[in-house]
Simulated assay, not measured.
Amino acid sequence: MSASKAMKWITGSFEIILAIPFLGATIVVFSGYSVLGFMFILHLITLILSLKNNESIYGSVLGIVTSLLAWIPIVGWVLHLITGILLMVSGGQKTRYPSNHTYPQ
């Protein structure tokens, strides 16, 4: 498993936890909203690793947007949920190598 796929699973799991009603809100509010900054950094790292490995980036990009907008109560919940699902799906997908790529042995 590549580092980017592992990061997608990790950030996706964190997003799903933050999407749990009341629990996610409690984590965000009692952290002084700093957990959103932490998630922004994790999504940025995941995005860079995904670009380096030529993997899908849509989950990480949405994660960055989610980190910026999650302070809005209902919008934040929806964005955490969608982002978590997208990251988990993209983390579980098989890597598609370009036609000129040599496959790992």
Rank of each mutant, 00 (worst) to 15 (best):
G84N: 01
P98H: 07
I57N: 08
S99Q: 08
M7F: 15
A70C: 13
V89K: 08
S99N: 11
G32R: 11
S4V: 06
G76A: 05
G63W: 00
L49G: 00
L23Y: 09
P104Q: 04
V78P: 01
H80G: 00
V35M: 15
V75A: 14
V61L: 15
F40D: 03
F14T: 01
W77G: 13
S34P: 05
V61N: 07
G32M: 07
V29M: 13
W9E: 04
M88G: 10
S13G: 13
L86H: 05
S50R: 12
I64V: 10
G37M: 10
M1T: 14
L81G: 04
G12H: 00
M88T: 10
L23I: 15
I41H: 05
T95R: 09
S50Y: 06
V61C: 09
T26N: 12
A6M: 09
A6F: 09
S31H: 14
I20H: 01
I17P: 00
K94C: 01
I57A: 09
A70T: 02
L79N: 01
T102H: 10
K94A: 11
T102F: 10
G76K: 02
H43C: 14
S13L: 10
Y58G: 09
L68W: 05
A25L: 13
G59E: 07
Y33D: 12
I82W: 04
V28S: 12
M1A: 15
S56Q: 13
T83Q: 08
K52M: 13
M39P: 00
W71K: 02
W9F: 14
N100L: 06
L23K: 07
F40Y: 12
A19G: 03
W71S: 07
F30V: 10
L47A: 12
H80L: 00
K52C: 07
P104I: 02
L68R: 06
S50K: 11
L81E: 03
I82G: 02
Y103H: 13
E55V: 05
L81D: 03
T102L: 09
L23N: 03
Q105W: 06
W9D: 06
H101S: 12
T95K: 12
I16Q: 02
I10M: 10
S4M: 04
F14S: 05
E15D: 07
V35C: 05
V29D: 15
S4Y: 03
A70M: 05
Y58Q: 09
H43W: 09
S2A: 12
L86G: 03
S50L: 07
